[in-house]
């Protein structure tokens, strides 16, 4: 039961983090459209790392 609540919290946190990453990346691209490619790559890497963390926590907590 508790681990399910924990999983839910993790998903909330990860969702918030992903939103931040995406939003900030959009802001960055809007500010510097010429750097869009680099920002996207960095965004995908960070999102992947966050996702790995979230999945890891989910699986460990299951």
């Amino acid at each position: 039961m508790y681990n399910l609540i924990g999983a839910g919290l993790i998903v909330i946190g990860a969702g918030f983090g992903l939103g931040q990453i995406g939003g900030k990346a959009m802001e960055g691209i809007a500010r510097q459209p010429e750097a869009a490619g680099k920002i996207q790559t960095a965004m995908i890497i960070i999102a992947a790392l966050l996702e790995g963390l979230a999945f890891g926590a989910l699986i460990l907590g299951r």
Binding site: L49, E51, F55, G56, I59
Partner: peptide, 14 residues
């Protein structure tokens, strides 16, 4: 390595 293996495994299984 753990993040590498868990990410791929979890994404595809999910």
């Amino acid at each position: 390595p753990f993040s590498l293996l868990i990410r791929l495994f979890a994404n595809i299984s999910a």
